[in-house]
């Protein structure tokens, strides 16, 4: 079992797997909508010039999320997949 981190801790280029959300209400639904559901595979693909937000590849689409919101996504590191 790998350690559980927040999505905002993930390095660029590092793949991870979603383990749950700690957001609630509208933001929770927004995160679920873009594909951040239990078990989903996510890679951080870059950051904006200000460092925040960062871009993540989720379900084949690249989506920008602020650190403040990414902190609510719990992920498992050390995942290996293509």
């Amino acid at each position: 079992m790998n350690e559980i981190w927040n999505l905002s801790d993930i390095e660029i280029g590092e793949p991870c797997r979603v383990r749950g959300l700690s957001a609630s209400g509208a933001m929770r639904r927004r995160l679920l909508d873009i594909g951040l559901v239990q078990g989903a595979e996510v890679v951080c693909v870059g950051r904006s010039p200000g460092g925040d937000p960062r871009a993540y590849r989720i379900c084949g689409a690249v989506i920008a999320i602020r650190a403040q919101d990414a902190r609510d996504v719990r992920v498992e590191r050390g995942v290996r997949w293509v």
Partner: peptide, 11 residues
Amino acid sequence: APSSFTLELPP
């Protein structure tokens, strides 16, 4: 306070 922000970066 600023609310959340998610934005798709299309190909």
